[in-house]
């Protein structure tokens, strides 16, 4: 990645953070910590990797994103507004009665949201169904899913893990936002799931673990994951059922990819970075403005 591209992504990530802090601060309360921890990932996805068209939010040939940790909606709303899916003025309507931007993602309210999420563990299953449907339809698109490390306590995450690997849904690229904190405390004390790499590998996934705030590293692992997948070239896949693919003379689909992102909860906001209490916290607009000014320094 050249330095111009890197600085473009840095600017995008910073802007996602500023908008997220601004929108939650304007309201006075919200899920700031887990939203800021995925800002860098969203910058890479929406400003480099994903094929989307803001003029056609349901364009069939787009890449899909399921934010399974649906409470991080505000960060995604920032990215979508910056891409032009809806006017930036909407951001100050977060969680107000009648808004199109509810705290948790809603596919029926917000242009650019591909799946309704909020009850943890469910989005990753829906991403499986989305990837499956696109394979049936022979589309050369990728489905991205973002889950949390706390969310990974949910059994459904592991039901989806086995399903994805068994069905070789190689066009599903998932991320675990490993910010090491959940509502009641640090994950190592509440419910330790390490090693995440060993668990996902045991379930049959390709696994990468990187610094989730390193834009170049994020882009590089996504591009590597995509490169492992054979092109669909518009043609319907002949052997989509896993059993027949196993015995096909053609190269079988590769494995799904899980990218573990080591992140910091609340990253980039001085008043909440690295704090357990940042999951859903109250802060006033003055605090938000100071944090935004600090990001600009």
């Amino acid at each position: 990645m050249n330095s111009m591209e890197l600085s473009r992504l840095e600017e995008a990530a910073k802007e996602i953070r500023k908008k997220t802090i601004d929108m939650i601060g304007f309201l006075g309360v919200g899920h700031i910590g887990g939203a800021l921890s995925i800002a860098d990932l969203l910058a890479v996805l929406y400003f480099r990797e994903m094929k989307v068209d803001p003029a056609q939010p349901r364009w069939p040939e787009r890449d899909r994103l399921v934010l399974s940790k649906g409470h991080a909606g505000p960060a995604l709303y920032s990215a979508l507004a910056m891409k032009g899916f809806f006017p930036e003025e909407w951001l100050h309507t977060l969680n107000k009665g009648g808004t199109n931007l509810p705290s948790h993602c809603d596919r029926n309210k917000t242009p650019g949201i591909d799946m309704t999420t909020g009850s943890l563990g469910q989005g990753i299953s829906a991403a499986c169904g989305i990837a499956l449907a696109n394979r049936m339809d022979g589309r050369d698109v990728f489905t991205y899913a973002i889950i949390g490390d706390g969310e990974s306590n949910e059994g459904q995450v592991w039901e989806a893990a086995m399903f994805t690997a068994h069905n070789r849904l190689d066009r599903l690229i998932a991320f675990t936002d490993c910010n090491k904190m959940q509502i009641d405390g640090v994950t190592s004390e509440i419910m330790n799931l390490e090693s995440f790499e060993a668990k996902w590998a045991a379930f049959g996934w390709e696994v990468e673990r990187i610094d989730g705030h390193d834009l170049e590293a994020i882009a590089s692992v996504i591009e590597n994951a995509r490169a492992r997948v054979r092109p669909r070239a518009g043609a319907k896949e002949r052997n989509s059922a896993s059993a027949s693919a196993e015995h096909s003379t053609e190269r079988p689909p590769t494995r799904p990819t899980m990218i573990i992102l080591d992140t910091i909860k609340g990253k980039g906001a001085e008043f909440c970075e690295g704090q357990v209490g940042s999951h859903n916290m109250n802060f006033d607009y003055e605090t938000a403005k100071k944090a935004i000014a600090a990001l600009d320094r």
Partner: peptide, 24 residues
């Protein structure tokens, strides 16, 4: 065969997968 999916003994995932299919 390409339109029937057995998710194994995993009812929660069955309905999540169904929802994802419906989304498409």
């Amino acid at each position: 065969p390409e339109r029937a999916f057995d998710v194994g003994v995993a009812e929660a995932n069955m309905l999540g997968v169904a929802a994802g299919l419906a989304a498409e």
